[in-house]
Nucleic acid binder design. Structure first.
Lengths: 158, 158
DNA sequence: TACACGAAGTTCAAATTCGAACAATCTTGA
DNA sequence: TCAAGATTGTTCGAATTTGAACTTCGTGTA
């Protein structure tokens, strides 16, 4: 190994700020979804991804799109199934596969939660930054995702 | 309530990218610290904050500076104490208080982990962005932290 | 067909997180 | 001095996450 490439003060500050912003944001989002709709953030994500995929998705696709491991997804889908928001059926083209689908109740719950969630994300994440700042953040995040997803099984391929 | 202020496609994409980048980054950092130094990321943060504060800090300050609740900090400090990396003593000026301090072994472990950690953060978070992109991200994160910390008990006051 | 290999989901134990409740202590104001 | 209220840190139970082991099934090859 060569000399360690230490972070400059500014790089460190940005890194810590990035982590802190993520922590604060997810904490508030979590709290609001819980209070407002009785959902955790991972659960909301599952419902939202299913909805975006016309109501159904295979478990693996759902896990890949989301922020959890396979076992974590099994757990969350089981919780959502208990709550009647999601159902499971086997995949016709692959007997190993399981398709999770949004129930009517799940759609209703998602609809009920979505406006408040969007409002909060806007308040926390978009407002308070002027357009140039938001653009700056968006560009940086884009570049970061591109960098991180290189050679990674990333969210989507299209 | 007025009309819901939905997120534009670009705002949503940026939000999801922000979350995803955070997830991927912390996952890789976690893994590297675990493999390289036998520390979780929260544990590394505790050691680093103590070191930055000349080796000791009260529990509440540590919890405020870090990313966990009070009870979470108690748990992690207990783990670090079992491992011999951190000690506890009571605060002379306040009998309720507990001061956590870095042991020699804790300092050594932190030193051993720091270079690899810095290297990884640089690789994942700094490299792969050109200077303009990094500046853009840094500015956005700064603005975001300023926005989130307004009226919040934030990391520091100085 | 039969076999080996990989992939899909689930289940399990262990670790971690959070909030609420608690005991101890400090602080303030009369 | 003393009581009321706030702070500090720990402990407890419940929920969640993760990786590993496991079962079931598809795929490719002889």
């Amino acid at each position: 190994m060569g000399d360690p490439r230490w972070l400059t003060e500014r790089e460190l500050k940005t890194w810590q700020g990035f982590l802190m912003a993520g922590t604060l944001l997810t904490r508030k989002v979590e709290q609001q979804l819980r209070d407002d709709a009785g959902l955790s953030h991972p659960q909301y994500e599952v419902l939202a991804r299913l909805s975006a995929a016309d109501g159904e998705l295979r478990m693996t696709e759902l896990a890949g799109a989301a922020l959890t491991s396979k076992s974590g997804l099994s757990y969350q889908v089981a919780q959502l199934e208990k709550a009647g928001l999601v159902g499971r059926r086997s995949c016709p083209s692959d007997d190993r596969g399981v398709i999770a689908y949004l129930t009517d109740e799940g759609q209703a719950r998602l609809r009920a939660a979505a406006a408040g969630h969007a409002e909060l994300v806007r308040t926390l994440f978009v407002d308070g930054l002027n357009p140039e700042q938001f653009t700056a953040l968006a560009d940086g995040v884009d570049a970061l995702c591109g960098h991180l997803c290189t050679g990674e099984p990333c969210v989507e391929a299209g």
